[in-house]
């Protein structure tokens, strides 16, 4: 294998190096790559939105399926533009209120489901040391999140146990992720050494 003669591979490789240069310090190459990524990704995002939203979710249902229900979000979307005009800018609260309402409304039942699932999973169906530790861990962690009691005395000691469990869990999640992140880096190095420089196969 030899040095790539593909113009596009060269672009990808140069941009890769430009981002890595940030590890040394903020510099013109990184700035170039950063501004380019922001510019291109928003251009790409707008195009995707045009295709997936305006065409697929508004134009097609309206014109072909005669689904006039989409006029409601269309109107709500247009109300957002009221922000361009000072005297009617307050109208943009209506779509925000709608969206926040839908979001909070949907989250309530899903929070419940989650709650039930967690309690269900913690029920000690069999008795062993692991399950005892789990029950202690769950309860002490919950005590840590207790807000209306001062964390001193007995409550303070239990919440201390809770935070110990939390730190062990964070450490475990941390350690669990390290190798995955390293393999991302190896992936990029492989691209540079094999696709671009052709040093390794």
């Amino acid at each position: 294998m030899a040095l790539s003669s593909n113009f596009w591979i060269w672009i990808a490789a140069i941009l890769t190096l430009a981002i890595y240069s940030f590890l040394y310090k903020d510099n013109p190459f990184y700035k170039f790559a950063e501004y380019l990524l922001v510019g291109i990704s928003i251009g790409y995002g707008i195009s995707v939105y045009w295709h997936n939203t305006i065409i697929t979710k508004v134009f097609n249902p309206l014109v072909y399926d005669k689904n006039f229900l989409v006029l409601i979000p269309l109107l709500l979307g247009l109300l957002m533009f009221s922000r361009f005009f000072k005297n009617v800018a307050y109208l943009s609260r209506i779509p925000i209120a709608f969206v926040v309402g839908a979001g909070t409304g949907l989250s309530v039942p899903s929070s419940f489901e989650f709650l039930f699932k967690q309690v269900y999973a913690t029920m000690p169906t069999k008795l062993d040391i692991g399950i005892i530790i789990i029950v202690i861990g769950v309860i002490s962690t919950l005590i840590y999140f207790f807000f209306s009691l001062e964390h001193k005395g007995f409550v303070g000691r239990v919440s201390r146990v809770g935070i110990t469990f939390i730190m062990v869990a964070f450490g475990a999640a941390f350690g669990y992720t390290i190798m995955a992140r390293v393999s991302l880096f190896i992936g990029r190095i492989q691209f540079l050494l094999s696709d671009w420089l052709g040093i390794i196969k």
């Binding site: 309690v119 913690t122 069999k126 029950v135 999140f145 807000f147 009691l149």
Partner: peptide, 27 residues
Amino acid sequence: IAAEDFLKVIIMSILVLGFLLSFLGSG
């Protein structure tokens, strides 16, 4: 916030109850 804490007490009670029942029942 106080309501959230009250619900925590309920959840903890269910867990403790479950543990006791399991201890008496299976143990």
